[in-house]
Amino acid sequence: MVEYRIDRRSGIATYLQIVQQTKQALRLGLLEPGDRLPTAKEVVAATAINPNTVLKAYRELEREGLVEPRPGLGTFVRRSLARPGAAADSPLRAELADWTDRARAAGLDREDLTALVASVLEERFGETAAPGERGHEENG
């Protein structure tokens, strides 16, 4: 089960924040096929946002084929975004952790590391690693 955190001052539409956080959970393997997403009631009780916003986000996830509604039961995960290499216990992650420890031992701080990683990502992927799709708050 995921728990959504809505940042009202982020400038990102509320429904997009739900979409992104769901995808993040799918990537990290926190949500797996067959898992049930929280009901709209559960989400709005915790976040105090408009229920239609949650439904809109779930419709978007459904359109992308990630989840499917089962009438009377809830919304369930259809497909995972987790890749073997990105899981919490993957060797790649262990290597990265190893590398981070060495960087710290060499005297680099958090910001130095972030800048270093961002520059490598930019070089290899060819564009700025955006924090997420920006959109307008459409539901007030």
Binding site: T39, K41, A45, A48, P51, V54
Partner: peptide, 14 residues
């Protein structure tokens, strides 16, 4: 305020 809004929205959702 957050809790009451949550309660209200849950009622609306349900």
């Amino acid at each position: 305020r957050h809790r009451m809004m949550g309660v209200l929205m849950a009622e609306a959702a349900e």
